[in-house]
């Protein structure tokens, strides 16, 4: 039975989650009440959950590299397509693959950090955290945690720099992590990588 056309009964809902709802769930654009229903179904239905995980992975991953086999697959499977479409593609003046990269990847999915750099050692009394601005983001939140994830400092800012000269009390030599979290204008959450750093002995 094809799930695409026929809906199959499931315990928590009458049918599997629709394509539209899965796609909206991936982009975090479902209304709260609908999202709860979809989450309830996903918790119950391994098949839909796997679909959600796999599709999210494809959407969130960088555009696939052109491996040897992927280079010839489209040519063999759709040779007529490529040949006939050539004038159109040339007319577009841009690589279709590049267009696709843009369409498959959100505009900003991460925040790029500046300092402290990974594995760096900083002076305990004057730690400055800096990151690159993300278009459409008005407010950032800086988080500093210890090595087991316990929050030791957080602060909101509209800037892309926070100096913590008198607010942060870190143990010399102990490993810490920092990252920045923000909400984009479309309501999705983006975050920076977790950057490790430590404090020099006085």
């Amino acid at each position: 039975m094809e799930r695409t056309l026929a809906l199959v009964s499931c315990r928590s809902m009458d049918a599997h989650v629709s394509v539209d709802d899965i796609a909206a769930m991936i982009e975090r654009r479902l209304p709260a009440n609908r999202r709860a229903a979809v989450e309830a179904h996903l918790a119950e239905c391994a098949e839909c959950r796997r679909e959600f995980v796999d599709a999210s992975t494809v959407v969130g991953s960088p555009s696939p590299r052109s491996t040897n086999w992927m280079r010839w697959v489209p040519l063999v499977a759709a040779a007529a397509v490529v040949i006939a479409a050539a004038p159109l593609l040339l007319h577009r003046g841009a690589s279709p693959a590049r267009d696709n990269e843009r369409s498959a990847t959100p505009a900003a999915t991460s925040i790029s950090t500046v300092v402290p750099e990974s594995e760096s050692r900083v002076a305990s009394d004057s730690v400055t955290f800096a990151w690159h601005a993300v278009p459409g983001v008005a407010t950032y939140t800086l988080f500093v945690t210890d090595s087991v994830g316990t929050l030791v400092f957080s602060e909101k800012t509209t800037d892309t720099t926070i100096a913590t000269s008198t607010k942060l009390h870190l143990l010399a030599g102990a490993p810490y992590y920092w990252y920045v979290d923000a909400l984009t204008s479309d309501g999705s959450s983006i975050t920076s990588p977790h950057i490790s750093f430590s404090v020099r002995n006085r």
């Binding site: 695409t4 394509v19 796609a23 909206a24 991936i26 679909e51 959407v59 369409s103």
Partner: peptide
């Protein structure tokens, strides 16, 4: 609710 590319991936 979603971009076409996301929707297409799910389909």
């Amino acid at each position: 609710k979603s971009k076409f590319s996301t929707w297409l991936v799910v389909v």
